[in-house]
Design a protein around this nucleic acid. Structure first.
Lengths: 135, 135
DNA sequence: ATAAAGTCTGTACTAAGGTACAGAGTCAAG
DNA sequence: CTTGACTCTGTACCTTAGTACAGACTTTAT
């Protein structure tokens, strides 16, 4: 068979078959051609695309946002102004995310450092660090 | 009234009143004392805590994960081994998140750079960059 | 002292992101 | 040439994270 069956795609991308169909419905991946009998024939790239989607989700982007990200990347019908706007907004968000993650990182670091020394470790408030900049 | 009413907390933390109650139910914030008549009296710190929760969510942590993060930070019933494990697992995840975010960042950067020069910008695939390391 | 605004509990609803069938047809291996 | 593994569509269901009342009580502002 030409192209990948849905089962292969799902397996390669580490997702449920239904998830693939779901993404197709949402337009996150494009409708693949079908065989005579109606079986989907996916191009191999779709696996990469699904992995990207999953990853972006774990980074806190919604499927809608991922969709836009991908559409722009696909060169879909957006004008330059639109893309500039979108990119710079996302960039800001990402900067903030990175900086907050760095904070959490250093907190966790402290936390685990305090640990082997025993004690109730009650003064390691994660919140202290977040007094500024989280809002 | 001693402490903050639920309405004040919600307003300060920029969330719905119901969300505050919801978090209380889940144990993300502890049950506050009540007035004679049953009104909640929240300590001011709760606002900070809720902001932290919201922020962590935007970074892709589930409420369950946030709960653990906070419990550990609160010095709750975990032994050192537990905390070490947890912290190092989370640290790894965070490192990965940061590195993926950096990737997306540079992609967006490229995207917006290509833009003013017009053209269909069809070769800026976000996916190319994700071939390795996303899984 | 009375209205408006706030709060209480409990239950029900929503939206996002899937997941799980049922019932029917298709493909591939022995 | 049949049996088991796949796939199809469609609908229903699930979890997470809230949100929205209803009906009753409390506080506050005038």
């Amino acid at each position: 068979m030409k192209g990948l069956t849905i089962g292969k795609v799902a397996k390669e991308a580490n997702v449920n078959i239904e998830t693939v169909r779901y993404y197709e419905r949402l337009g996150l991946i494009s409708k693949p051609p079908r065989t005579e009998s109606g079986y989907r024939q996916f191009p191999v790239e779709v696996v990469q695309r699904i992995k990207f989607i999953k990853r972006a989700q774990e980074l806190g982007f919604t499927l809608l946002e991922v969709n836009k990200l991908l559409s722009v990347s696909d060169g879909k019908d957006y004008d330059c102004h639109d893309i500039q706007q979108f990119a710079s907004k996302k960039l800001e968000e990402i900067e903030q995310k990175i900086s907050d993650l760095e904070k959490i990182k250093s907190i966790l670091y402290d936390l685990s450092k305090k640990c082997p020394g025993q004690g109730p470790l009650d003064k390691c408030s994660i919140l202290e660090e977040f007094k500024e900049g989280s809002d």
